[in-house]
Amino acid sequence: MYAALELDRVTKRYGAVTAVDDLSFTARKGRILGFLGPNGAGKTSTLRMVLGLSAVSAGRIDVLGAPDGRSVRDRIGFLPEERGLYRRMTPVEAIVFLAGLKGVPAGEARRRARTMLEDQGLGEAQNRQIRQLSKGMAQKVQLIAAIVHRPELVILDEPFSGLDPVNQQTLETVIRDLAEGGATVVFSTHVMQHAERLCEHVVLLAKGRKAFDGGVAEARSSVPRALVLEGALEAGAAGALPGVASVASQPLEGGGWRHVCALRAGANGQEALKTAFAEGLDIQRFELREPTLHDAFIVLTGETPSPETAFTGEAAA
């Protein structure tokens, strides 16, 4: 089977509110799919439908060959956005209990729990009550509980939220290891850097509708490259340079301007720089900036652009 997860024109309504509107995408087996969107875009609603926690209003879902996650819940690992564990249990007890619900025998679950806790640097904490652990440690315990039964499909809802940079890095490693082990990983986030580092395939959601579905490189290409010029030159001069489509300017504290020049498709910025220097424009600093997934996210989801990305108006249109 090619797809571990497939959504076909899925809609979710809560009364008069449409949380997810006509959403279709596919998560391929053994790959990492980034499910991106701003807060309130419908990511959690979608994941809950996939898991069978809430009903689909319209459309069809195929999860590991089943119409929703309920009949294949033992093959799915889920980390919810709002995390919590039984506070008076020890990490081992909590993991063994949740693994037991997924069909892992207690002895085996205990062995795996201890190994995974050691791997995550929680060996010392495995017999302390969860309420005595730090938030980061508790989140690691919950992640282990979500994957201890070696699921084929791992669904992580905003897994990086609340983690410090070191633990974010650790989590990225865990996600890569899961995919290398053959699991399909779907994670939602509104922080693009993680998706950029982890995913080949991203789905962008905005206001319940799919804004983009494809590779990271393809998403980036939806945003033009930019030439950043700082100096005394005027916005009009910057806008007249060859290959520049639009300019967004802001004054610098010490005087002068910072112009972010959006380049037309195919323009590489070299021509514009050559012309600027040939014309003797006052340029103190320049930078050729490649678009990031963050830029693509802002453009594709229709979020209010920051000054740095204001030039992307034509791409958004």
Partner: peptide, 16 residues
């Protein structure tokens, strides 16, 4: 207590 500590959603993904 389970609702406030967000354990219920984890349980719902693991059992009927």
């Amino acid at each position: 207590e389970e609702k406030s500590s967000k354990v219920l959603e984890v349980l719902l993904s693991s059992a009927t």
